[in-house]
Design a binder for these strands. Structure first.
Length: 376
RNA sequence: GUGGGUAUGGCGCAGUUGGCUAGCGCGCCAGAUUGUGGCUCUGGAGGCCGAGGGUUCGAGUCCCUCUAUCCACC
């Protein structure tokens, strides 16, 4: 299922086999929260820009159109016409990020819909049921993501609860996968490590969930306000306590530099809204760093976003034209930028894999980082 | 031609009985954004307040003249 092909230090080059096909890692999953990559990007586009895994969100799809609707329509793959792997986030993070009115209790979380304000309850069982209805390839455990600034006492209690929730997630997932009418009876479950920036809590939790035999393990609660150094430190300290024979997923991260640093520390799955959100805002990734196409200096720039790039935007259009589209708020502008950014990320992951295959990741990483002067 | 209205940064406007360092929205310029509410936030540049004269300690605000423009009526 998960086979390591090559190692360089802690960095892993592997293949993860699923019912929806194999995933070459390290991999960057392209985020399409509501079963759509924002910016008018179709699944047909995803095939063209080298996407291996699409990521959607349990909470968002539960609220609209409703997981039962998607189940009736044959599951997420059929619904959005994407036959490669899909990972669904559990909704745990939304409890944190959409934290308007919410109450976290042992059984789960009560909160309000961001669409119409109605009350919603979601606990481990509900999250698994929704994800089972969505029939994604990989389901994420329902966790709590404490703020990076949370006090130690709170984090300890929260992490203990997240562990209990993981036990319930596994039981419920096993039950659902065994049901006659379940769409994807081989749905995988990834557990999530938490602990804010407290090394010992992170490590204890990693050891604890490693015993629970999940199909993969994620580091959650990072890139939520702490410094890059703190994040790298947590990854470095925690990854050795997660099963090496299972994929490791760093949730919500990050910049190209973040990814290179995390790959070096043993992470092989990533996802982040940066390429798509920044694309919509005209911030584009290049090998020389990030550029803001809204800047006046690109008004007469006839070059592509990046010389030599083979993405749909760079093959045909100039910076000046795309800048005009963005300023005119034409959807095409956003679309081309998102396509470029996702292509850039997917391509970088491909380069990382090649470098690992050939045992030269360290030099590749250095060269890539040196090139990206403006990278934040 | 007559009567009335309006003239304030690129555009649209606020500016109370005269006291401003002349504001606001959009736009412009730049920056943030990490398991996504196509958002949001943060900075910055840019005005001798149509022109000229007067009253006053003090005028974007009051008076006179002119110019431009809009509306109505001839």
């Amino acid at each position: 299922m998960y086979q390591i092909l090559k190692r360089e230090g802690r960095a892993k080059r592997a293949v993860f086999t699923t019912v929806h096909g194999t995933i070459q890692t390290p991999v960057f999953m392209n985020v399409g929260t509501v079963a759509a990559i924002k910016g008018a990007v179709s699944t047909e586009d995803l095939e063209k820009i080298g996407t291996q895994v699409e990521l959607s969100n349990t909470y968002h799809l539960h609220v609209r159109p409703g997981d039962r609707v998607i189940r009736q329509l044959g599951g997420l793959h059929k619904f959005m016409s994407w036959d490669k792997p899909i990972l669904t986030d559990s909704g745990g993070f939304q409890v944190f990020s959409l934290a308007g009115l919410r109450r976290i209790k042992e059984e789960g979380v009560y909160f309000h819909s961001h669409i119409d304000g109605r009350k919603i309850f979601m606990g481990p069982e509900e999250s698994m049921q929704i994800q089972s209805n969505l029939a994604s390839t990989i389901a994420m455990a329902f966790d709590e993501c404490p703020a990076s600034t949370a006090e130690r006492g709170y984090v300890e209690a929260s992490v203990a609860r997240t562990t209990r929730w993981l036990v319930r997630c596994r039981q419920e997932m096993a039950r659902l996968n065994g049901l006659e009418d379940t769409i994807n009876k081989e749905q995988l479950l990834f557990g999530i490590n938490q602990g804010a920036v407290f090394d010992d809590i992170r490590i204890d939790h990693a050891k604890r969930i490693a015993e629970l035999a999940c199909d993969g393990y994620a580091l959650g609660g990072l890139a939520v306000g702490e410094s890059h150094e703190q994040m790298y430190h947590v990854i470095e300290e925690t990854v050795p306590y997660l099963p090496v024979d299972k994929p490791t997923y760093l949730m919500g991260v990050g910049t190209p530099a973040n990814i290179l640093e995390a790959v070096e520390r043993g992470v092989d799955f990533f996802d982040c809204v940066y390429p798509s959100r920044n694309g919509r805002h005209g911030h584009l990734y290049t090998n020389c760093g990030k550029i803001n196409l809204f800047n006046a200096k690109y008004e007469l720039d006839e070059r592509p976003i990046e010389e030599g790039c083979l993405c749909p935007a760079c093959r045909r259009y100039s910076r000046a034209y795309i800048r005009h589209l963005l300023k005119a708020k034409e959807m095409l502008g956003m679309r081309l930028c998102v396509l470029h950014n996702l292509y850039f990320y997917n391509k970088m992951m491909e380069e990382i894999r090649e470098a690992l295959d050939e045992g030269r990741f360290a030099s590749y990483k250095k060269q890539k980082l040196d090139g990206m002067q403006n990278e934040m």
